[in-house]
Amino acid sequence: MTFRMPPEWAPHERTWMAWPGPNPTFATPAELDEARRAWAAVARAVRRFEPVTVVTGPGQEEGARALLGPEVETAVRPLDDAWMRDIGPTFVVDPDTRELAAVDWTFNGWGAQGWARWEHDRHIAKGVAGLAGVPVHGSPLVNEGGAIHVDGEGTVLLTETVQLGKERNPGWTREAVEAEIHARLGTGKAIWLPRGLAGDYGTYGTLGHVDIVAAFARPGVVVAHVQPDPSHPDHEITRETVRILRAATDAGGRPLEVVEIPAPTALTDAEGAWADFSYINHYLCNDGVVLCAFDDPRDDEAAAVFRDLFPGRTVTPVDARTIFAGGGGIHCITQQQPRI
């Protein structure tokens, strides 16, 4: 059988999330409480459009349900962290039989980073697949869901510092990585970006995930994060990203149309480090777009662009600053299960 990862805009059966628990990412009780409220806001926003199941650590389900509300389902599994996009399965479909399966990438804490814990998280993909009742396809490639983005027609976006980084896959060649990615996702063309945003290499960074940099909006169309301010290190990084994307063709041979989404005006975060705030960490759910917001003057501008890109969907901005403080965004904490 040949399996293919559907694009995010294809219909979903449900969204999977993971509940924040005590760990180095949320170091104090106040930070943990703030994170839980932020995760709950995203879950409730997605639930307006499709079912949501939140996996919680043992003993945390009652507190989670109090914040999530009665319409969000919960399931209990041991957890280390709360980034379901990365620790959960990548769901794939056989286009002929319509069989659903789950890819279980090898997970090593975003490149075995010193702060990361993955004793339990490395098993969550299998756990979620079991809850969904689908078979698991294991992969030896160290990879995460936030490190890939597909158009559903054979093209995948990747970043060199993730799949080819020594922290994840030492000794793997570009050809070997592409062969494994294509075999698992049913893709045939990889577009490589050299790196992620500057802030993604700091504390709690992923070392270059693509889903904060660029994403397909539909086949042949990519939304790309751009930093207009030349004083910010992402200014040159994103200019290079756009140049590469504009020069690329997809699996069907089409030149890509690139829609540039300017970064929020804030150049630094609450701790004074360079901010990697990005609207390109949105989540497409059934009839909806849950969009990162930052209480920033560009929030409305970004929302307008997404409404133009997805005229049949309701765009719902959700404050993502707390999520970004932990190292990710709305896309990083959600994982879609395709509808069969």
Score class of each variant (00 low, 15 high):
T2K: 15
M5Y: 06
P6T: 12
E8D: 14
W9Q: 07
W16F: 10
W19K: 08
P20M: 10
G21N: 09
T25H: 05
T25Y: 00
F26P: 00
A27L: 13
D33Y: 00
A41P: 06
R47F: 00
E50Q: 14
T56H: 10
G59Y: 04
E61D: 14
G63T: 10
A66I: 10
L68S: 09
G69A: 08
P78W: 06
R85L: 07
D86R: 08
G88P: 04
G88I: 08
T90D: 15
D94S: 10
D94M: 09
D96I: 13
T97A: 14
W110Y: 14
A112Y: 01
W115A: 07
R117G: 12
W118I: 07
G133H: 11
G133C: 13
V136W: 02
G138T: 12
N143W: 00
I148T: 14
H149T: 04
D151W: 08
G152A: 08
G152D: 10
E153K: 12
T155H: 02
L157S: 00
Q163H: 15
N169A: 11
N169H: 11
A176L: 12
A176H: 11
A176Q: 15
I181Y: 03
R184C: 10
W192I: 07
P194L: 10
R195G: 03
Y204L: 15
Y204S: 02
V210I: 15
D211W: 02
D211C: 08
I212Q: 11
I212W: 00
V213N: 01
A214Y: 03
V222D: 01
V226Q: 04
H232D: 13
L245T: 04
A247H: 05
A251R: 12
V258Y: 05
T265P: 01
T265V: 15
A266W: 09
L267W: 06
D269E: 12
A273H: 15
F277I: 01
F277R: 13
S278L: 09
C285A: 12
C292I: 02
A303L: 07
L309W: 03
G312I: 03
T314I: 09
T316L: 03
V318G: 04
G329D: 07
I330L: 12
I330S: 02
I330Y: 06
H331E: 02
T334M: 02
